[in-house]
Simulated assay, not measured.
Amino acid sequence: MKYYLIFFGFIFIVLSSCEKDDKYYSPYLVETYAKYLDSLDLHCPDGESDIYFEGMIKGQQVCYKDGIENYVFKYKFFSSVVTDSPNLVVGSKYTGLLYQIVLAFEPIYPRPNGKESLNIKFPYFDPNRDTVEFLDSLFSINKHRLKSINDGNEMVRNKTKFEVDLMMVDRGDHGERGNAFLISTIYGKQSSSFVTINKVERNESDDKVFYSLEMTINCKLYHNPLFKKEGLWGEIEDGHVVANLLIEK
């Protein structure tokens, strides 16, 4: 959500510009993040799927395939609160709501603790904007930049840049929603990174629009400094994505 992006950016500046103190970190989150990093099993499983990601991640050939090895593809709509403050406090000015579409390759439910998902987050758009018009406009542009904390205050309201992350979840003892650990493009420089729209096929009926999409991702993924690790974790190189979206008018 927008609130969390603003908050993470604020903390990143604090931790990077002063001597770090252990009081800034949660020992449980630091330990859990390190454990999940060590347990990552990046690989390319056997099997074929019409919807997939395939590319190099951190120097290894990696694939996520819909319906293979308990992974599924989903596209999701999220709404995000925008404020002029790094956190939701009394006196912060509410400046609106933004929508976002996310393409996700994720483990099937119930999601195992520490099992990663790959999330490709489209730029934000206004709620009063028609979704089909937004996607038509987005897909008409060949190359797109990626959002970075180095963009400064512009990052939190940017409506032109993508985000990409690997997300691991600690669901807690009861299997409910818990802590999310992101290795993300937003935590570092992306000057040479792009999401490239290679091919779009569009079919329209009276009440729906079907998109068949092919795109390529080249970007850098960084640690979240809240978990006592900083800097570059790895890169996605020649990440080829084939996906479908069905949008109701």
Rank of each mutant, 00 (worst) to 15 (best):
V102D: 08
K121H: 08
S140F: 02
N119I: 12
V156N: 08
N113G: 07
P112V: 02
P112N: 06
Y124M: 15
S92L: 02
E116G: 02
L98S: 10
N70I: 00
K115M: 07
S140T: 03
V82T: 09
I108Q: 12
S137W: 01
S92R: 05
F73T: 01
V102A: 09
V156W: 12
E163T: 07
V72P: 00
N158Y: 03
S140Y: 00
F125A: 10
P112H: 03
I108L: 13
V156H: 12
Y99M: 13
R157V: 11
Y75E: 13
F162K: 03
K159M: 13
Y124F: 15
H174D: 15
L146P: 04
K147W: 05
V164E: 03
V90W: 12
G172P: 09
E154C: 01
S92N: 05
T131F: 01
D84R: 08
E176V: 10
D173H: 03
I120D: 07
H144Y: 05
F139I: 11
K115N: 05
M155P: 01
S80Q: 11
K147L: 15
L146V: 09
F181E: 02
V164C: 13
L88H: 07
N113V: 09
P86D: 02
V132E: 13
K76S: 08
T83P: 02
R157T: 14
V156F: 15
L182K: 04
L103Q: 14
I183V: 14
T131N: 09
S148H: 03
E116I: 09
V156P: 00
Y124K: 15
T185G: 07
L88Y: 07
P127Y: 08
R171P: 06
G91Y: 01
R145H: 10
V81Y: 04
N70T: 03
F162M: 14
I141E: 12
I141D: 07
R111E: 14
V102Y: 01
R111I: 14
N87Y: 11
A104N: 10
K161A: 13
V164G: 05
L182R: 01
F134L: 07
N153Y: 10
E106D: 04
L182M: 05
V102K: 02
R171H: 10
Y94G: 10
V132Y: 06
F122M: 15
L103A: 09
P110K: 03
S137R: 14
S80T: 11
T95W: 00
K159W: 03
F78I: 04
F181H: 01
V72C: 02
G152D: 05
K143T: 10
Y75P: 00
G172Q: 04
E154G: 02
N113F: 00
S184P: 02
V89M: 09
I141F: 08
K115A: 08
Y75L: 07
Q100T: 11
R157N: 12
L138Y: 14
Q100N: 12
E69V: 03
G96W: 02
M168V: 04
E163Q: 12
E176T: 11
F105H: 07
V72H: 05
F181W: 04
I68C: 08
I120Y: 06
Y99V: 03
Q100D: 02
R145W: 06
F78M: 05
D151V: 00
D165P: 00
I149F: 15
N128M: 07
L97S: 05
N179Y: 10
S80A: 13
Y99R: 15
V169N: 10
S79K: 15
F78R: 11
